[in-house]
Amino acid sequence: MIFVFALFLLTLLVITALAIVHTENLFVAVMLTSIFSLLMAANFFILDAADVALTEAAVGAGVTTVIFLSALALTGEREKPRVGGRNIALVTVGILALLIIYATFDKPRLGDPNAPVHQHVAPWYLEKTPEYMGFPNVVTAVLSSFRGYDTLGEVFVVFAACIGVLFILGVRPPRESLEPRDESSGLRHHLIPQVVGRLLVPFIVLFGLYVQFHGEYGPGGGFQAGAIIATGVILYALLEGEAEALRAVPRSVLLGMVIGGAMLFGSVGVVCMLMGGAFLDYSVLAADPVWGQQLGILIIEAGVGMAVCGALLSIFHAFAARESLS
C-alpha cells in the first residue's frame, strides 16, 4: 500500500521538476521548488529516513524558499527566453538519462537486504549504539560520535559559507543615490496573519528546542533544530519587519552563535584530547564512558544547532538588509 503511495509521490516529483524547468516566471519556479522539497521530504519519510525528512522539510521547503525569494526581490522575476540550441541540450540530457537508467540495472533493487551498502559498517553501528551511547537514535549517534569528524567539517563549511555571504553582501551597493526605504513594516497591515503568526512563533521555537534536546531519543538533532528555530525567527521577521526581528535577535548575537557553535564543537574535541582520549572521543569526558558519550553528544549537538541557526539567520538578514537599500 505504501509502495503505491511512493510511486504516486515520485511521479509527482518528476512532474514538479519538469514544471520548474519549464516555467519562465522565476517566482513560480521558486514556489514549485518549495513543493518539490516537500514532496522530497515525504519520499524520504517513506524510505525510513525520518531525520532527513525533518531536515528537508525545514530547510528545503522553509529556509531555501525564503532565501530564493529575497534574492528574487533584488534581481527580478522574469526570465528571458533563449533561442536555439534547445535540441542539442535535449539530446545530450536524454542520452545521459538513458545511460544512467541503464546503469541502475546493476544496482541492488530497492530494499534488498543483501545490498553491499548494508554489509559494511552499518550493522556494526546498529549493534554498538546501545552499548556505547545508551540511547536509541542510531542516526544521532553516527552523526555526532562515530562520524564526528565529518560533522565537524560540515559545520565549518556552513560557517565558511555564512562568512562568505556576509562578505559578499556586506559591501555597500555601487549605486550611491540609493536612499534607505522607510523601515520595512512586514505584514503590519494584515491583521489576521500577524495575530496567528505571533501565536505560532513561540510554539515553533519551542518545537525547535524539543527537536534539539530530544534528538537522542527520536528524530532530531542540531541540524534540524537550528533550521526550525531559524524558520521561527524568519516568520517573525516577515510578520513584524526585519528591523523588529533584529531588535529581538541582534546581529552580534547571530554572529556569536555561528562562531560560538563552531568553536564549541571544536573545543569539545580538544578537551577530549586534554583528558587523554583521541580528538572527539567523548568516552573520556566522564568516569562512565556511556555518560561521557552522552555528555559529549549533548554539547556538540548544541554547538551544531547554534551554528546552523545563526548561519541561516545571518544569511537571511544579509539578503533582507540589501533589500531595504535598493
Binding site: V52, T55, G60, T64, G221
Partner: peptide, 10 residues
C-alpha cells in the same frame, strides 16, 4: 544526506 542538506542551502 542530513548534513549535506544543510550544507547545500548554505
Amino acid at each position: 544526506i542530513l548534513t549535506a542538506i544543510v550544507v547545500g542551502v548554505s
